[in-house]
Amino acid sequence: MAIERIFVRTRKLATLLAGAALATSTTLVVGAAPASAAGPCGSSYSRIGAYRIPEDGTRTGTLEVYYSSSTGRNCALTYGYGAYANTTSWKAVRISKGDGSGGQKNGGQFTYYAGPVYVSAPGQCIDVVGEVPAGVSLELNNVHCG
């Protein structure tokens, strides 16, 4: 009878330890997720604006603007929306300093988004343009001054 009790206790202890090990390994896997949680512009960027394209009328896209305080750079992307989301269609994005210099643009037949494009403009305003589809755009001048 005493041997049977020891065996039952040992089995309960083994089950308890196995459960604790599984919980710990699950926690480690879940804890590892933020390492891959970088945004579309990079891990140091935070979204500072999201704008509908066009500003009025039927929405066809979204212009997103990001900023990295560690690099002093802004980033922009244009996503399709509605009939233009997740389908190959014209998408374009442009970013520059508020005076029009130092910019980048990206446009073409994309499935998900145009960009990312970057500009270094610490302490300055920026201009951004998003377009989905061709001819339907949103232009923001001298925004996100910093």
Results as ranks from 00 to 15, higher is better:
residue 80 G to I: 05
residue 22 L to G: 13
residue 111 T to C: 01
residue 144 H to A: 12
residue 135 G to C: 10
residue 17 L to P: 01
residue 70 S to D: 07
residue 69 S to P: 08
residue 12 K to P: 02
residue 63 L to N: 04
residue 2 A to M: 05
residue 12 K to R: 10
residue 67 Y to W: 00
residue 92 A to P: 04
residue 40 P to H: 11
residue 84 Y to I: 05
residue 112 Y to P: 04
residue 120 S to W: 09
residue 46 S to D: 14
residue 5 R to F: 06
residue 49 G to T: 02
residue 19 G to R: 00
residue 81 Y to Q: 06
residue 139 E to D: 15
residue 10 T to L: 13
residue 129 V to C: 10
residue 38 A to R: 12
residue 113 Y to E: 04
residue 4 E to I: 13
residue 45 Y to C: 09
residue 89 S to C: 11
residue 39 G to D: 14
residue 39 G to P: 09
residue 10 T to P: 02
residue 38 A to C: 15
residue 69 S to T: 12
residue 140 L to P: 12
residue 6 I to A: 13
residue 4 E to W: 09
residue 128 V to T: 15
residue 121 A to F: 07
residue 73 R to E: 08
residue 71 T to M: 04
residue 99 D to T: 04
residue 11 R to H: 08
residue 84 Y to K: 03
residue 67 Y to M: 00
residue 70 S to F: 03
residue 27 T to N: 12
residue 54 P to L: 05
residue 115 G to F: 07
residue 37 A to D: 15
residue 143 V to Y: 11
residue 108 G to F: 03
residue 62 T to A: 00
residue 85 A to D: 14
residue 96 S to I: 04
residue 89 S to V: 11
residue 61 G to M: 06
residue 106 N to K: 05
residue 116 P to V: 07
residue 101 S to N: 06
residue 102 G to N: 12
residue 8 V to Y: 07
residue 9 R to A: 14
residue 122 P to W: 08
residue 136 V to E: 12
residue 18 A to C: 10
residue 37 A to S: 15
residue 4 E to D: 13
residue 118 Y to T: 01
residue 18 A to S: 10
residue 89 S to N: 05
residue 30 V to E: 11
residue 1 M to L: 15
residue 101 S to G: 04
residue 109 Q to T: 07
residue 66 Y to H: 09
residue 52 R to C: 05
residue 125 C to G: 12
residue 92 A to E: 15
residue 93 V to M: 03
residue 5 R to K: 02
residue 144 H to V: 03
residue 21 A to Y: 03
residue 127 D to S: 13
residue 33 A to P: 02
residue 111 T to Q: 14
residue 103 G to I: 06
residue 97 K to R: 13
residue 62 T to W: 00
residue 110 F to R: 00
residue 114 A to K: 02
residue 80 G to C: 07
residue 122 P to N: 10
residue 116 P to H: 03
residue 40 P to C: 15
residue 107 G to N: 04
residue 69 S to Y: 03
residue 85 A to P: 02
residue 111 T to K: 09
residue 114 A to V: 09
residue 28 L to N: 00
residue 4 E to K: 01
residue 63 L to E: 07
residue 84 Y to M: 03
residue 145 C to E: 07
residue 69 S to K: 02
residue 88 T to E: 12
residue 3 I to W: 05
residue 106 N to V: 11
residue 67 Y to H: 11
residue 11 R to F: 15
residue 32 A to S: 15
residue 87 T to F: 06
residue 5 R to Q: 11
residue 127 D to G: 13
residue 62 T to G: 00
residue 8 V to W: 01
residue 74 N to A: 06
residue 60 T to C: 00
